[in-house]
Simulated assay, not measured.
Amino acid sequence: MSVPEFRALLPVRPATAGDRSALGELDRATWSTLHAVQPRPQPPYEPFFDDRNRPEDHLVAEAVTGAQETHVAGYLRLASPTPLACNAHVRQIQGLAVAEWARGHGVARALLRASYAEARRQGAGRITLRVLGHNTPARALYASEGFAVEGVLPGEFFLHGRYVDDVLMGRSLTA
């Protein structure tokens, strides 16, 4: 696919089953050693949505391009970190991807802010995430959005010949 010219970001919306192909393509295109702990996806590709990874757990950012076409610019997966009732007040960001051509246009920030509203709508008062220690750009974005480091699992992953920390971050959703 050629790189679209970014014109405008549309309001973030909930994903639908019809987004399966576009989100799967985006997920594969944005795979990087900066954030991935699993190997690069290889054909045949697994379906993007399944019983544990449902459309209703995703928010989608779309952008209008120079040709006045709409393209998926990014997604965020928001889910409960556990099935426990005592943890029902927490939502966890379990994936965030932005197309290369859409980076630098506020897509990730728009997805994050939409996730706060969605988490509140679901009754959450807190939101968390995990980020690899060497992912400096993501950590800076999260910090700028009010996330604080709440824990570090040193050397939790051995990736590409070196140990990488798993950084736990969170923030309150209450005023």
Score class of each variant (00 low, 15 high):
Met1Cys: 11
Val3Asn: 12
Pro11Gln: 14
Val12Tyr: 04
Arg13Glu: 10
Ala15Glu: 05
Thr16Gly: 09
Ala17Leu: 06
Ala17Tyr: 04
Ala17Gly: 04
Ser21Asn: 03
Glu25Phe: 09
Arg28Cys: 11
Arg28Val: 13
Ala29Asp: 12
Thr30Asn: 08
Thr30His: 06
Trp31Met: 06
Trp31Phe: 07
His35Asp: 10
Ala36Trp: 01
Pro41Phe: 05
Tyr45Val: 13
Pro47Val: 08
Phe48Trp: 14
Phe49Gly: 09
Asp51Ser: 14
Asp51Leu: 13
Arg52Thr: 14
Pro55Arg: 12
Pro55Thr: 13
His58Lys: 06
His58Ser: 07
His58Asp: 07
Leu59Ala: 12
Ala61Trp: 09
Thr65Lys: 07
Gly66Tyr: 04
Thr70Ala: 06
His71Met: 02
His71Glu: 02
Gly74Asp: 02
Tyr75His: 10
Leu76Asn: 03
Ala79Asp: 13
Pro81Ile: 07
Thr82Asn: 04
Pro83Leu: 07
Leu84Pro: 03
Ala85Gly: 02
Cys86His: 10
Val90Ile: 15
Arg91Asn: 11
Arg91Tyr: 12
Gln94Ala: 13
Gln94Pro: 08
Gly95Phe: 02
Leu96Gly: 00
Leu96Lys: 00
Val98Arg: 01
Gly106Cys: 10
Ala108Asp: 02
Ala114Gln: 04
Ser115Trp: 03
Tyr116Asp: 15
Glu118His: 06
Arg121Pro: 01
Gly123Ser: 06
Ala124Asp: 14
Leu132Glu: 04
Leu132Ile: 11
Leu132His: 06
Thr136Ala: 12
Thr136Leu: 04
Ala138Val: 00
Ala140Val: 06
Ala143Val: 01
Ala143Glu: 00
Ser144Ala: 14
Glu145Asp: 03
Ala148Lys: 03
Val149Thr: 00
Gly151Asp: 02
Leu153Arg: 03
Leu159Ser: 01
His160Val: 09
His160Asp: 10
His160Gly: 07
Gly161Ser: 09
Val164Arg: 05
Asp165Glu: 14
Val167Arg: 02
Leu168Asp: 00
Gly170Phe: 01
Gly170Lys: 00
Arg171Met: 02
Ser172Gln: 08
Leu173Pro: 09
Thr174Ser: 10
Ala175Lys: 08
